[in-house]
Amino acid sequence: MTAPVQADSQLAQSTLLMKVRGMTMSYGSGTAENKILENLDLDVNTGEFISIVGPSGVGKTTLLRCLSGLLHPKAGTIEVGGAIIDGPHPDLAVVFQDYSRSLMPWMTTRENVAFPLQGKGMNKADRIRVAEENLAAVGLAGQGGKYPWEMSGGMQQRVAIARALAYNAKVLLMDEPFASVDAQTRFDLEDLVIKLKQEFGVTILLVTHDIDEALYLADKVVVIAEKPATVVDVIVTGFGEERDQVDTKADPRFGEARARILHRLRKN
């Protein structure tokens, strides 16, 4: 299917940052071939927050792994800033769902955040400074000396977000980042991400199975469904910059969009 993405004039004004065309992914081959994604198109503009929502098992994680370069799609291209990327790229940072496992328990939180910068060859003083700045940005000022296992799940996920921010990538990919924290922490983290987006102007691509979360956070919700998965709907939320856990969710447009997505997913 072709991309129904550039529907909105407001978004068309911004510059295109990430362009995915015809992405197809499958495991196995021949008769045993199991197609996960088929001919998937996606456009992400600079500064935009996009949620990709889909039912469990539709292939969201495969999609995100392809986008982040951890998996090679069978067909299609991914462009970031005009350059075709193949494999992990400095313009892409990822926040994983498994925060407790993706943080290294033998490093302090400061070292965890600074570690990718060390990989980039940044000197020690600079990377410590950058790590502290980003920890402060996610509300963990002065906690850099702690180990991840000394922190709650929500705080660990903040560290993972700080690590991705510090990497200074153009696009932040988030894979169900709040799926394994309790509801209250989840709201806090959602609001944190909205705040970070406003402050730093990061472009965010978030994958989730939670429709409310997708709508609440995003400028644009991309619905994927069917087997193999393709984009079945795109909704521009239009809630503006400011969001509120109560008011935004009480907005009639929120309910309408929610019903539309649910309806769309039920059909399959």
Binding site: G69, P88, A93, V94, W106
Partner: peptide, 29 residues
Amino acid sequence: QEAAVSDTVAVFRIPPLLRFRRVLLPSAL
């Protein structure tokens, strides 16, 4: 090696030697 750890190392493009010293060795320690 935890799948999440190797994913992290891949995404943040940690060079092999650094990976050996700071990830592989401590996680196997």
